[in-house]
Computed example of a mutant assay.
Amino acid sequence: MLITIKSEGQVMPVFTELDSLPDTEGYAGMFAGVSKGRLFCFGGANFPGKRPWEGGKKKWYKEIYMLQEGKGWLKLADTLPSALGYGITVSYKNQFIVIGGNNETGYSDKVFGYEWAGGRLKTIHYPPLPAPMANMAGALVGQLIILAGGNSSATGQAGKQFYMLDLDAIDSGWSALPSWPGRERMLPMCAVHNGMFYLFGGETTEINSLNQNYRLILDDAYRFKPEKLNGKWTGTWTTLNPMPKGLSAAGSPLPVLENGNLLFWGGVDALTALHVDPLTHPGISADVQLYNLNADMWIYAGKKQGIAAPVTLPVVNWNGRWLYISGEIKPGIRTNKIYELK
């Protein structure tokens, strides 16, 4: 079901720009988490110097930046063990946990946490993933880390992986949960509400009538309710109303607004996916879609003007505010902007 509201003022969320990241180029595929009330943004990739069509080479990073309320950004002496991007971060009990990701040498199955203590980041080790993963969706549902989709190598196809780690039973390691009823996917979006995990869109590869591959942008939507039966985690899926416009690689986890709506801003839609020439690429669509969790209903909020919409970026809840962190605004072009959702 789709409802179109013509008056933007009734439903369009307000974005406020915060202090930009110290790096002027910005990053795609960053990680972002919270520890002891501080915001940490780190990793990701960009094209320093030359753009891809100019022969520029993609570079991954391991630097960590920290922001405190009322203060400016601080680049820490601590760094990631290696350059990394396009994985998942969840924040849990004053830790932020880094899951999977990739870099120029391959994909990672590593899982490790950080906690701010004594002016440094203390490292906590977690069980590795069942397989290397990047470009997935993931979030914390209670004490469960849940991951969906993604791929396992630079040439690997999108998958239907659906994994869970119980942070109250870490020694049990990761386990597979029943996968959603739809297609395999990478770069999907997810959300968490009332103890349930929501999965939206993403993309996979399809073959046309000429036997050529193309990017299939998905528009399906699902809700997963985890439950523990006979001492083992499982759960059930519910198919929701599909998205009016499919999206891939939008900011995730999706912000949950006070009125019960999920916010979809940025991301690659089917029309944008048709553009193959970066020099003529129009940028990411400014459309804003809302999904009402209570009514299983979609709302078109209008176009968000004056801000370049991003893809491949984390969204993090920091001290009760939803933040969009950096991202890619055109092929090979990043932004260092950070926006707070009001």
Rank of each mutant, 00 (worst) to 15 (best):
N211Q: 13
E227A: 10
N259R: 07
T239L: 02
L247C: 02
I217N: 01
L218M: 12
P242C: 05
D219Q: 13
R215C: 06
G201E: 07
A169R: 15
S209K: 13
E184S: 13
S252H: 12
G195C: 06
S209W: 10
R215E: 11
A221L: 04
G202D: 04
G201K: 02
T234Y: 09
V256P: 02
E227S: 11
G231R: 08
S172R: 14
L247Q: 04
Y198Q: 02
D220H: 06
Y214L: 10
F200G: 01
T234M: 06
K225T: 14
G260C: 09
P244D: 11
F200P: 00
T236R: 14
K228A: 07
G201C: 06
A176E: 10
E184H: 12
P253F: 00
L247H: 08
A191D: 01
S209R: 14
L254Q: 04
M196R: 15
S175H: 11
L257R: 06
L263Q: 01
N208C: 08
N259Q: 09
F197M: 06
G182I: 01
N261S: 10
D168P: 00
Y214K: 12
W237V: 07
S172I: 00
S175W: 00
F264A: 05
S248A: 15
K245N: 10
N259S: 13
S252D: 03
S248T: 12
V192Y: 01
R185Y: 00
L199N: 07
S179H: 11
R185V: 05
G231N: 05
L199G: 02
A249R: 00
L187C: 08
A191N: 06
N194Q: 15
K228V: 05
N194L: 09
L262N: 03
W180F: 12
